[in-house]
Design a protein around this nucleic acid. Sequence first.
DNA 1: TCTGGGGTCCTAGGACCC
DNA 2: TCTGGGGTCCTAGGACCC
Length: 361
Amino acid sequence: MAPKRVIAHLDCDAFYATVELLKRPDLKGKPLIVAGSGPRSVVTTASYEARKFGVGSAMPASQARRLCPTAVVIPPDFTAYREKSREVWTIVRSRLEAVQGMGIDEAYADLTGVEKPLRVLRELVEQVKKDTGVQISVGVGPNRLIAKCCSDLGKPAGFVAMGREEACIRFAAAPTRRLPGIGPKTAERLAEMGYVTVAQLQEADEAQLAARFGDRWARYLKARATFHDDSPVETESGAAKSVSTERTFDTDVETHDEQEKILRALARELCENLQAKRRQGRTVAIKVRLADWTTVTRAKTLDGSTNDVELVTETAVALLRAYAPPQPVRLLGVRLAGFDDVEPDKPPAPVAPVGQLMLPV
DNA sequence: TCTGGGGTCCTAGGACCC
DNA sequence: TCTGGGGTCCTAGGACCC
């Protein structure tokens, strides 16, 4: 029988704000908001002082300023965040075997079979704090779902561990939205059916859920509510499956001529990025967001893979012309997918050893 | 008071081939 | 003349996550 899994979720507290405070210690204790300066920017991170005013991630910056007029607003410095992130996860990986990074400021680790896993984690958190100034909150459980919910529970500087049955009880009164995988739309639909809390979803009739969401989703939702999750911690991350560049404009762009000009610049930016990464893709796609927030995508798959500025640009422009946006445009984007190149920094695909026959399956 | 930028995965329909 | 089913590829949209 397989040993009981021990999964940890490690999450940096208010990561961007923390990095800014390390650069500017004089701001310590003040409410701090990391957000762009444009009229349509959103909050990327708020310090805990700012959160007391109701400021949260993904909130329009204009709203955040109104909620907390005394806050110091700093534009994001992604270069600094990437650098600090590298420091943090280098330490974590030096101490733990199986780590799966999830974006810049969090990761899962599989500590199954590790002696005294909680002690190992506590010492790790302490070292990261001492060496980098970054505070990590930790959640531990028998699977990723419980680990994730637990790291959230103790923030900031949290350290929470529990088993599945305890999780079912401790999160019973929480809204379903608290479960990762249940977003605003699904939570809304569940609420319409009378399932507002995790406990209610635990007791929900699966056949009734299936009628509304389909078999697969129904099973998934029940599994989430009862904290069943056997998804593995994936150590190999792999290269991105698509790469895109997009921009929201301070004011909507009205003429097709101007839209085209912007799209060309975006296509160039994307191709230069891909050339640096030595990646080529077959599918060129554009994204157009209209003034009324309608979002449209159009894609074309080419015969061969490319990252050529001319080819990608002309394909993207042709897609835009065919669509001919019927309203002013607030966002334009270009994306390349369908990569069939060798992943960077990896040896070529293995071939059959000499003397071994490749048999048709 | 409006709503960023970078991704992933899933679904569903149509084309096309065997 | 009519009737299949399966598999793959492509496109578009939607939900979700950090």
